[in-house]
Design a protein around this nucleic acid. Structure first.
Length: 191
DNA sequence: CGTACGATCTGCT
DNA sequence: GCAGATCGTACGA
């Protein structure tokens, strides 16, 4: 069962980011179904968060997606090479987002392997967001898509995640964000 | 119009 | 541990 759009409307991005841990992310791109369990996320808390693209209420062609009603994808390019996949949350007009940083592949293993090139022994398809999007076939074309359609979506799992198995840490690569760098907005599933 | 830079990855040391 | 790749976006002139 797909997670309904209403789920993404919560105004507590941080709790929402944590709740994504253990859920499944699927894509159906180029006719191939691929997916896995989300093991790492980061919350970006809108206009008061220096690390967010929408800090200070910045509205540009790129950040416009973040102001949409929760439950759409926000994909953008970083360092000219890597596509990053985010989930927009909260109500229309409030630019919250959750960056998905890692998954544990469960579906479409062969296709994931093919897209990633050679795959290491370990089962985490990513140490970082760039590899995850590549493995699932996500790129800039998939910006601003509704997450209840048949292209990108999330599903609940039967397995309950113990809160103790979720680690929270500082976010990565945002040294420029000043004191906001210290916020524990990153969540990792211990394996 | 031009320039600087980034929510990263890889490979080499 | 560190440099290099590589290009869309933002912003200033």
């Amino acid at each position: 069962m797909k997670i309904p759009l209403s789920y993404y409307l919560s105004d507590d991005v941080v709790s929402l980011a944590k709740s994504f841990i253990g859920k499944s992310l699927f894509t159906k791109i180029d006719g191939k179904l691929t997916g896995g369990i989300i093991t790492e996320t980061e919350a970006y808390a809108g206009i008061i968060d220096r690390a967010s693209h929408a800090f200070g209420g910045r509205r540009t062609k790129r950040t416009e997606v973040m102001y949409q009603s929760g439950g759409v994808s926000y994909v953008y390019l970083c360092y000219g090479i890597h596509s990053m996949f985010n989930i927009v949350t909260n109500k229309r007009g409030i630019p919250h987002a959750v960056l998905v940083r890692a998954i544990y592949p469960t579906t479409g293993w062969e296709e994931i392997q093919k897209r990633s090139g050679k795959l290491q022994r370990n089962y985490t398809v990513t140490n970082g967001p760039g590899k995850l999007t590549k493995a699932l076939g996500i790129d800039l074309k998939h910006n601003s898509l509704l997450l209840n359609e048949n292209i990108i979506w999330l599903e609940n799992n039967d397995v309950a995640i113990d809160n103790l198995d979720i680690l929270s840490t500082k976010r990565i690569g945002i040294e420029y964000a000043g004191e906001d760098e210290l916020l524990y907005y990153r969540f990792v599933l211990k394996i």
